[in-house]
Design a protein around this nucleic acid. Structure first.
Lengths: 345, 345
DNA sequence: TTGAAAGCGGTACCAC
DNA sequence: GTGGTACCGCTTTCAA
């Protein structure tokens, strides 16, 4: 493999000149620059990004770790993050831990193979995060609570939701409402669960522990499987509040396969308003963000990059950014569709 | 940041000993190893993966470049690739080019920031691929045709499909069948299109150019948007053959929103058998692979790694592997569901 | 405008 | 079993 040394040697130049020329630094004359580039092409030179990284002590990379990149929920976030990182000239890569494959995630965290890491999965252990976060290696954790130096944890709350899906179901005369938790470690699940409990409480409906289920995960499959287990008690209940749309959709498929009609036999509500919730039939009553969440992700990436680069701007606006991020609120909206039986009154 | 030099100095050892100890090489005594590790922890030492990469001239990384990781089609492939790379002790990362963000993909290709690259998108230019593939930097291209040294291009053909979805629709008495192309650069689209044309031909049905549409992409949205444009001519036709399930599902939503009933008013067929095709209502008639495609992806990763490592095994079995890969055939099966109107005869 | 040289933080060879 | 040291390929300061 040809290196800048080879180019330098072939041209009787020094490596520094070659380096400067290749990087279009103004200090080399146009002639030598052209000469160098021609030789580089001739020798099939390829730059070693790694060597450059080592010297510059910067990878230019922000890594996003997630369990399953195919979930619509994450694909939106990925788009936002990518747009933002790319706007700042940084690289953006995704690391998936689906199926317990966390070796890569671990190695990238342990060996500082990125400038910053954003984690949105519970599959990466708290310890690993806390022990590896540094001033020059900030780790952002979303969707769960992790406390440590240089770990930045944001879980913007959805306090502005006017009416929860559970409340809506109650308003439609449904009272025996089961709850299905997704990944139990996730904050999203516990939030929806809290709202569920609060809605019951507000309407003096006692909580029935036998109607609380745990899907153990957030994919269609998890929803399908837990719902299968619920079949024996389906006739006892009026409705199911799933903690996310994904598991709700899996659950609906299961119910359909068992000849149970939605919403005639049972009402279903989800949470998140993922695109699929509108595609399926019956379409899913759910709730979701209205305010553009991209503002949050843009701010987050901006904050990280200012931090990494220790820029002057950082000192100036980091406080505001930090405040913006921790107080970010996504207004949520109830989205009434077909999966909840409408009251006849 | 503490480095091995700092540990060596603090302990009065040499860097080589420290390095060996940290990597659990047998040549250091257990005592010094423990000593070194304790000191490492004390100094909050973190290994620089990049420095190690530079010296070892290997990144241990296989990068998968795709436009949109959220498409079910790719998520299956991603799972297969990840399982395989992880089994070989390699890291696996995903680079997304969605929304024309190909800076990262370019940099990783140009600067050899991985040991091998697998590309399944048309958003990366042929030239870039051809110019950068090397013996020690193989590039695999899927889903399209690129020829060059050290670029390995596989597009396993689905020759064994017994009956195309288009043919099935014809068999149900439908004759006025429109076709919607997805990403027009993709081989998948052109294959489905060829089958569509052949099926019409076989049944002496003339091809109507006004019924051929191009969605310009492969997402739900693309399917939705092109179908919206087709609304004025919907009454002229019996059926729509979409080139992929994704756009078919987007199209179905659009039709539903316009009060057009499936399959009463129009029949729909897709291609690919993605999980969602079974969830939606009416469920989508499509065709998909039956033979386990993971065999292909496992073989592919194995091949790449043998190549990268220039192992002896490589010489021995590379021919067979290459043959296996280029002759891999995924048997396809017609999956009849609800979206095509059944013949009353 | 160009060159010399000092590293970045490891690995691995060779000597002891 | 441990130490000395030459790199890996690039960036960057300093000197010419």
């Amino acid at each position: 493999m040809a290196s800048i040394k080879d180019i330098a040697k072939a041209l009787g130049l020094s490596v520094s000149t070659v380096s400067l020329a290749l990087n279009d630094k103004p200090r080399v004359s146009k002639e030598t620059r052209d000469l160098v580039k021609a030789k580089a092409k001739e020798l099939k030179y390829v730059k070693s990004g790694i060597a450059a990284d080592l010297q510059r002590k910067r990878t230019n990379l922000i890594l996003f770790i997630v369990n399953d990149a195919s979930r619509s929920f994450f694909s939106t976030i990925i788009n936002h993050l990518q747009r933002a990182t790319s706007a700042f000239g940084y690289d953006f890569l995704i690391c998936t831990t689906y199926g317990n494959h966390n070796a890569t995630a671990e190695r990238f965290i342990k060996e500082h193979r990125a400038d910053a890491i954003i984690i949105y999965t519970s599959t990466v252990a708290d310890d690993l995060i806390i022990e590896n976060a540094r001033e020059d290696f900030p780790i952002v954790v979303l969707g769960r609570e992790v406390t440590g130096d240089y770990v930045y944890c944001y879980n913007y709350s959805n306090t502005q939701e006017p009416l929860s899906t559970t409340e809506y179901m109650i308003s439609q005369g449904l009272r025996k409402i089961a709850f299905v938790k997704g990944s139990s470690a996730s904050l999203g699940t516990s939030r929806t669960f809290n709202k569920y409990k609060k809605s019951l409480e507000d309407h003096q409906i006692p909580l029935n522990q036998n109607w609380i289920f745990d899907a153990g995960g957030s994919s269609y499959r998890h929803g399908y499987e837990i719902t299968e287990k619920m079949i024996p008690i389906i006739s006892e209940i009026d409705a199911i509040q799933y903690s996310t749309d994904d598991i709700a959709i899996g659950g609906m498929l299961c119910l359909k396969e068992h000849g149970i009609h939605i919403p005639e036999d049972i009402s279903i509500a989800g949470k998140g308003n993922i695109p699929e919730s509108n595609f399926i039939s019956p379409s899913l009553t759910t709730s979701g963000a209205t305010k553009e969440a991209y503002l949050f992700y843009e701010g987050l990436v901006h904050y990280l990059i200012l931090m990494i680069e220790k820029s002057d701007e950082y000192a100036a606006i980091s406080m505001q950014l930090a405040h913006f991020l921790s107080h970010f609120n996504s207004e949520e909206q109830l989205i009434i569709r077909e999966s909840v039986k409408k009251s006849v009154f």
